[in-house]
């Protein structure tokens, strides 16, 4: 009797173990409720990412942006002139000296090999649009990157929000267009 009880208990434990193991096989794929919500107001993000140029030549703005992005090492992936869209990307090394030093230290102390970032793909899309009064062109650029570690696993998927990155882009675009950029509210 005791032996049967033990077997049942063991079976129950095994069953629970397998169910838990099965559940861990799939990561949560339910979209979080705040997936579309931004942590800061849309106007602030727009101010950082967008500028207005006093020209009506949308094509000229897209061409200038494509030239600038080529200067920055990007390759054009896609474009749609009728919608004022330019999509670019570049693949670069993501090796960071600090990370590598950390990896070596952990390996020496704990004998464990930690993974470190190895490659990254930086993507950007430039969208132009005539302003409401049709007297200017609004330009908005957005950057994001994907990082892979030295085991080939995706280690980071992120938007790039550094204000300086955007400011630098528009300083160069203004020079290329011979026009002064205005902030878009």
């Amino acid at each position: 009797m005791t032996s049967n009880f033990c077997n049942l208990k063991q079976l129950a434990v095994m069953g629970l173990f397998f169910v838990l193991a099965g559940l861990t096989g799939c990561a949560s794929n339910t979209i979080p409720p705040d997936a579309l919500l931004m942590k800061e107001p849309a106007t602030e993000i727009r101010q950082r990412q967008a500028r207005r140029y006093a020209t009506t030549d949308e094509k000229q703005v897209i061409i200038a942006a494509s030239q600038l992005l080529q200067d920055l090492g990007f390759n054009v992936e896609n474009s749609a002139k009728d919608l004022g869209l330019l999509v670019v990307s570049k693949d670069r090394s993501a090796v960071d000296g600090g990370q590598v030093a950390g990896q070596i230290a952990v390996a020496v102390i704990f004998g464990v090999r930690m993974s470190v970032d190895k490659e990254q793909k930086i993507r950007a899309s430039v969208v132009t649009c005539p302003s409401a009064d049709r007297k200017a062109i609004d330009v908005r650029v957005t950057f994001q990157r994907l990082v892979w570690d030295d085991r080939g696993q995706l280690s980071k998927l992120e938007r790039l929000d550094d204000p300086e990155m955007y400011q630098d882009f528009y300083i160069k675009l203004s020079k290329a267009l011979f026009l002064e950029a205005q902030e878009v509210g």
Binding site: N78, L85, V127, Q144, R159
Partner: peptide
């Protein structure tokens, strides 16, 4: 496209036709 950018997306592709 503007709405998607406001929501934090980067545009991958578009086709007006």
């Amino acid at each position: 496209m503007a709405t998607l950018q406001d929501l934090g997306f980067v545009i991958d592709n578009a086709d007006a036709d």
